[in-house]
Design a protein around this nucleic acid. Structure first.
Lengths: 207, 207
DNA sequence: CCAAAAATCCCCTTTTTACAGGATTGCCCC
DNA sequence: GGGGCAATCCTGTAAAAAGGGGATTTTTGG
């Protein structure tokens, strides 16, 4: 069986070295090289096509998510494994939506990494346990309440400093409607007033 | 010359492997081991004392900053080098304030890492160029206004959801005083109302 | 198709903020 | 020793938001 040829894309030298040293011992894979940003990655691909790319989500300039999309469009046959320290749901979602074959956390060991690579090469999708848990768990912050689309819209406008009146104008609804949403938000967040509501919402990433 | 004995504290396996593989080739250092969180780090220190600890700032449970403080208090002779992907000023400041001898980004190469280690062992402080630049830049957000101690106090209480009345009670001042501070805050932040004020303040790290 | 959830609307009262003006004290630095 | 700033206090009006009730209509998911 031919080894899986891999390109590493990560701007953290130490991480690249870590992966390299881990995978070096495994005969089933061959490291073709490493790129530190989107541009050098694309330039690399002009010359050599790996079977799989280990792609960090947080890159300078272009984000890993955008790069993932670009690679997937131009080279649909290359498998892409997301790689990061974050288990944020939104990133995972974005990566998967943009053609990634999985998502591995940087605290993964060699075993997990190999399973992820093999799963991806077979056409499957691999997610680290914690990542999968975060995905099904829905909420990142367990304290974060479930709010509706409309409520989120209103919440954003409130945080922007608009009054109920102005929000009503923007959303083409009555002031009382906006007021209802606002009251629901206060209840859902357990906030006593707008200030506390906004603070919680910002802290919980929602805004 | 005796090699510098090093403990690595990082919850990302890949990063640990990366550092290990980088430093393995250098005879001037000896890796004693690695810990993945604050607890196992402290347990390690109960038995063996390294000369220097490479400490990730983002750890599970206890943050690297708190751990840094704890180590420095209990073992003041151990040098500590902060390690992270973030160049945020506040973290750097916190690390240095808590006894760290420097701060290295994870995209550092072997050369930089060795210089940092040697500088730290000689009693100096090493900062990555980017980190130093961020530090001298002073303001993270140039738009962040200068607010007084009292204003900050009031701002925090506002964000906690206290009304002017309640704040006045807590600070043992009149309601009108609190109202003045609030008005000044609104002006300084260029916010039209409390909601916008709180959002800006949270986003600008002030809260 | 039907029930639950979401979105919409309404009334009324009280409390809190926003806005527009000041004014006074104390303290630090040049 | 005087200017500047921070912190304190004031009066008054107008505008929002909070609190506590409902009620109706769309959506949407099973």
């Amino acid at each position: 069986m031919k080894p899986v040829r891999i390109l590493i894309v990560d701007d953290h030298y130490i991480v690249v070295e870590g992966i390299r040293s881990l995978l070096q011992r495994v005969s089933a894979v061959e490291i073709l090289g490493a790129a530190s940003d989107a541009e050098s990655c694309m330039r690399f691909l002009d010359r050599r096509i790996p079977d799989l790319i280990l792609l960090d989500i947080s890159l300078p300039h272009t984000s890993g998510i955008d790069l993932c999309k670009a690679i997937h469009e131009k080279y649909p046959r290359i498998r892409i494994l997301g790689l990061s320290t974050f288990k944020e749901q939104s990133f995972v979602r974005n990566m998967l939506d943009n053609g990634a074959s999985g998502y591995v956390l940087k605290n993964a060991g060699i075993d997990e990494l190999m399973i992820a690579i093999q799963t991806a090469m077979k056409g499957g999708k691999y997610l680290s346990d914690e990542v999968a848990a975060a995905l099904t768990d829905q909420q990142i912050d367990p304290a974060a309440p479930v709010i509706t689309r409309r409520e989120k819209e209103v919440l954003n406008l409130i945080a922007e400093g608009y009054t109920n009146n102005e929000i009503a104008g923007r959303l083409f609804v009555s002031v009382t409607t906006v007021d209802s949403h606002r009251k629901n938000l206060l209840t859902k967040f357990g906030a006593g007033n707008t200030a506390a509501l906004v603070k919680l919402a910002v802290k919980m990433q929602i805004i």
